[in-house]
């Protein structure tokens, strides 16, 4: 297990993390370190535990063994620690999970106003700034149901960014999208990566992975099988399971 050598402090550290769903051992001895500004892409076959892994990082799932430290705070039984972490870790879901009864603008301001105690005007200015960044400021007054999938996912990204998180987690953000909408979301993510955001992405978009990832992580059956920089990972995978997976996913 080695990660890209960087001089900055780690933002996320996982040490020997284990998790079970009943009898099913979904995460096995996971060790992973994410540094400030690092961009990690996690890939692997479905059911390999990659979504569960990133859901553990912001406490959406509890881990049963091992340590998870985010921004110096350990995720443990102490709910105050969990509360401190979840505002710092943004998350974008496969199904967007926008709030359908609120406008796009209200979706973006709800967190800053209610959780951060920001004033309405300030929160709206912040929301507009991020909506511009994801290229849909003109949709601010609409409801999510009036937008396309790609637009909804960009709103979801803006909503997360409004919390000014230290890390962004992406859980298959383009998997529920029609093909013609994938690019607009990936463009926003590339832009975000270029700006220096620390990112952990679970995705099957290998083109995106090649472009932005500092580190590729390959998971299978609950374990991290291989990690490495993309050039190495795609060019000369060491593990047979990685080779098999890449051959299946890159044939087209």
């Amino acid at each position: 297990m080695q990660s890209v050598p960087t001089s900055t402090a780690p933002v996320i550290e996982l040490h020997g993390v284990n998790k079970w769903f009943g009898e099913f051992h979904v995460l096995k001895d996971i060790d992973l370190t994410v540094h400030q500004g690092e961009r990690i892409v996690v890939c692997g076959p479905s059911g390999s535990g990659k979504s569960t892994l990133i859901r553990c990082i912001n406490g959406l799932e509890e881990h049963e063994a091992g340590r998870i430290v985010v921004g110096g705070i350990e995720l443990d039984q102490n709910s105050r620690h969990v509360d401190a972490i979840r505002g710092e870790v943004g998350m974008v879901f496969q199904q967007f999970n926008l709030f359908p009864h609120l406008t796009v603008l209200e979706n973006c301001t709800l967190g800053p106003i209610r959780s951060r105690g920001m004033g309405r005007r300030e929160a709206e200015a912040l929301a507009m700034q991020y909506l511009e960044r994801v290229h849909i400021p003109e949709q601010a007054q609409k409801h999510p149901g009036q937008l396309s999938g790609g637009q909804q996912q960009r709103v979801a990204i803006a909503r997360s960014l409004c919390m000014k998180p230290r890390v962004m987690l992406f859980d298959e953000p383009t998997s529920a999208l029609d093909p013609e909408m994938i690019k607009e979301v990936l463009d926003v993510m590339v832009d975000l990566a270029t700006s220096g955001m620390t990112m952990v992405c679970v995705t099957h978009e290998m083109g995106f992975a090649r472009t932005v990832a500092d580190t590729m992580v390959f998971m299978d059956a609950g374990s991290i099988i291989e990690t490495g920089p993309p050039a190495e990972f795609f060019g000369a995978p060491r593990n047979d399971r990685t080779k098999l997976f890449l051959s299946q996913i890159l044939t087209h």
């Binding site: 979840r86 879901f93 967190g111 997360s160």
Partner: peptide, 18 residues
């Protein structure tokens, strides 16, 4: 109400009551 709605609220730092 889908579970994703709770999860989205959770990730933007809202309390249970909120």
């Amino acid at each position: 109400i889908a579970r994703g709605q709770y999860e989205a609220g959770y990730t933007i730092g809202l309390s249970r009551l909120q």
